[in-house]
């Protein structure tokens, strides 16, 4: 086989080996999930996987694969086999019920009560002053 690339020519590749398989089962090892932290103080975010034999090797490969262009302060890797995850089919277990609005900040408003009390007892509304100043400006 002749190539325009002299390096390939030097390999003296055989002309035809069609149909031959070269990759055995597990030859690419197992996978590690990679988590990337952009800068100190940020969350680590899942960015993908690498194939590796040990966590140390996974870190080296993750550095090559996921930090080439990105600002990075820290990486985590964890064997895929060691991750336990919920099923999307069970996503309803995360839903809140309408009766649980007492847990939401937006469920609490008492300005009406305050204003009513202020009017009845002659207490000045601070915010009204501020509004007047703003209008005058």
């Amino acid at each position: 086989m002749s190539s325009i690339d002299p390096r390939i020519d030097r390999l003296e590749l055989p002309a035809n080996e069609d149909g031959k398989e070269v990759m055995n089962k597990l030859e690419q090892w197992e996978t590690y999930e990679v988590f990337h932290q952009k800068k100190r103080g940020d969350q680590h975010i899942h960015v993908g996987i690498v194939h590796a034999v040990t966590p140390e090797m996974a870190i080296i490969l993750a550095k090559e694969q996921y930090t080439r262009r990105r600002q990075t302060s820290n990486l985590w890797v964890v064997r895929t086999a060691d991750v336990t995850a919920t099923a999307y089919d069970d996503a309803d277990m995360f839903e809140s019920t309408p009766e649980k609005t007492y847990r939401e900040a937006s469920d609490y408003y008492c300005m009406d009560r305050i204003r009513k009390y202020q009017l009845e007892h002659g207490i000045k509304d601070r915010k009204e002053d501020r509004r007047k100043v703003k209008e005058a400006e």
């Binding site: 070269v22 990759m23 597990l26 197992e30 999930e33 899942h46 034999v53 895929t80 086999a81």
Partner: peptide, 22 residues
């Protein structure tokens, strides 16, 4: 083919494959 021996040498006997999460 030329890289196979490295991969085989590193492969741990107890390796089990798990499909990646995402």
């Amino acid at each position: 083919e030329k890289g196979a021996w490295v991969r085989k040498a590193l492969l741990k006997a107890e390796t089990k494959y798990t499909v990646p999460l995402a």
